[in-house]
């Protein structure tokens, strides 16, 4: 396979809710190479989450989505795929982790059942193999005593552990691309650091592409190779993360970086 893992050209997304029609993504283009981590930063409403959903061909909750432009995944056009083919791809080749682990997990199914479901459906594993694989995956993401926890329900896990479980589910089919949309925003800072370390490690061990969406410049700083800054549905600045942070070219990027509160040094004085 040659070329980038993901090649997006002129992507547009129009989100239609009962109240309004929003041009959420206005013709953006970017690549994500295999093994590469790319960050998307911007303020709420800039279109970064809609972009992620658009790649998975999912609509934001309570809305429908109209897409234009082209999205090539290993050269295959995703926007032209049938819903069945898309469903097969989703979760298996492209997986996603969302902000809120509680609403992304089914509260009345055990963790083992939810993981097993996915593994049996996508990889055709037997019930027994799926269970064993699930225990391995839980261990991999750092859930202590996974064999004892596998039959527990989501509410029996802490917020950080639930996010680990979601990550375990997301990587269970060894996807080529992991899309993480604000994966640590709901977590305490110490737990956030653990989840970021986990994502870094998994990416290195498995060579996945990572699309990391966040409003937090600190989170994106240590995690990605390149960063795209979004504003009102457009990418206003793109480049290697070190360059964008050290020498922001666009006034909007500069304004965002200037507004970030600092723990030490300039701006952190009173």
């Amino acid at each position: 396979m040659t070329g980038p893992l993901l090649e997006v050209r002129g992507l547009t997304a129009t989100v239609t809710t009962r109240r309004e029609v929003i041009q959420a993504v206005r013709g953006i283009s970017f690549d994500i190479n295999a093994d590469e981590a790319v960050g998307f930063v911007g303020e709420s409403g800039c279109g970064k989450s809609v972009t992620a959903k658009a790649l998975m061909r999912l609509a934001p909750e309570g809305a429908s989505i109209g897409l234009g432009g082209s999205v090539a995944f290993w050269g295959q056009d995703l926007l032209g795929l049938g819903e069945d083919e898309m469903r097969d791809l989703r979760g298996r080749r492209i997986a996603m982790v969302f902000q809120d682990p509680m609403t992304s997990l089914n509260p009345v199914m055990s963790i083992g059942a939810q993981m097993g479901d996915m593994l049996r459906r996508h990889l055709g594993l037997s019930v027994k193999d799926a269970r064993e694989r699930s225990i391995e995956l839980l261990a991999l993401v750092g859930i202590p005593d996974p064999a004892d926890r596998i039959d527990d329900f989501p509410h029996q896990f802490s917020g950080g552990q639930r996010q680990r479980v979601l990550i375990a589910i997301a990587i269970s089919c060894e996807p080529d691309l992991l899309i993480a949309d604000e994966p640590t925003t709901a977590l305490d800072v110490t737990v956030q650091a653990q989840i970021l370390r986990l994502l870094l490690r998994l990416r290195e061990e498995r060579g996945m592409g990572l699309m990391l969406i966040t409003h937090d410049f600190g989170v994106v700083a240590g995690m990605v190779d390149r960063v795209n800054v979004m504003y009102r549905g457009e990418i206003v600045e793109a480049g290697p993360v070190d360059d964008v942070f050290a020498r922001p070219q666009h006034a909007y990027t500069r304004a965002l970086l200037d507004a970030v509160p600092r723990l030490h040094g300039v701006g952190a004085a009173r």
């Binding site: 650091a193 989170v219 942070f245 600092r262």
Partner: peptide, 12 residues
């Protein structure tokens, strides 16, 4: 130590 800092080199 856990607060992510907006400095790629330091944060990595």
């Amino acid at each position: 130590d856990a607060v992510p800092v907006p400095d790629p080199v330091l944060q990595r």
